[in-house]
Amino acid sequence: MLEARLEQADLLKKVVDAIKDLVQDCNFDCNDSGVALQAMDNSHVALVSMMLKAESFSPYRCDRNVALGVNLTSLTKVLRAAQNEDILTLKAEDAPDVLNLVFENTDSDRLSEYDLKLMDIDQEHLGIPDTEYAATISLPSVEFRRICVDLMALSESVSIETSKDGIKFSCAGDIGNGAVTLRPNTNVEKPDQNVEIELTEPVALTFSLKYLVNFCKAAGLSKTVKLCLSNEVPLLVEYALAGSSYLRFYLAPKIGD
């Protein structure tokens, strides 16, 4: 059986909220190392890869590998019943029809229990190759969100160019052009505000802003976001979570003009 207890329901609520508009039905693959989810959006432009490591739960028990086929819209309805600070426990049998969710509020001695019906999801297993990225940029997640939202007001696409001097986001639209450049910046007192650039070669790629703005829903999960780029490969947008867990998004580039 599976039994996984999260100190705060908030984590799962935010993860599901960040991915539910990209992917609808997906398997939560549970094994002794944790709970993983990998799903591509219908248009094959974006891929979500979530890993909640066993260390993120306390306790965590998973006797047999189990795939929990979940409709995220339905899961969202159930999670709405959980307060952010509630203790959340996920439970499932070895061959489950339902996922049992328990929300505990220790202050008010309230215990809520929900059973979510599971579905059989025949999901293609895709391997993500290990990639040595030419550029890795770490920046505040709210800054990244702001840039994407601001540029989307002008255009559907953004060009991202990295050099050792900085990272430039630029777009061209019907009403005009826009560009935001961030230079490497270290703030000892507020490391969350740092912009760090590691570069082995300059990169220039174009992406759909609609997807990037969608990924930015995860900004509440982590103060910083990591962008990994190489020419002609998908962008990796990573939000690191506590306990070496993560929420990653991959986005296929656009080519040509």
Binding site: H44, L126, P129
Partner: peptide, 14 residues
């Protein structure tokens, strides 16, 4: 406008 590539091509089916 630029052409959107398909992510499917990048990932190995296992």
């Amino acid at each position: 406008s630029p052409f959107q590539l398909d992510l499917y091509n990048y990932f190995i089916k296992s």
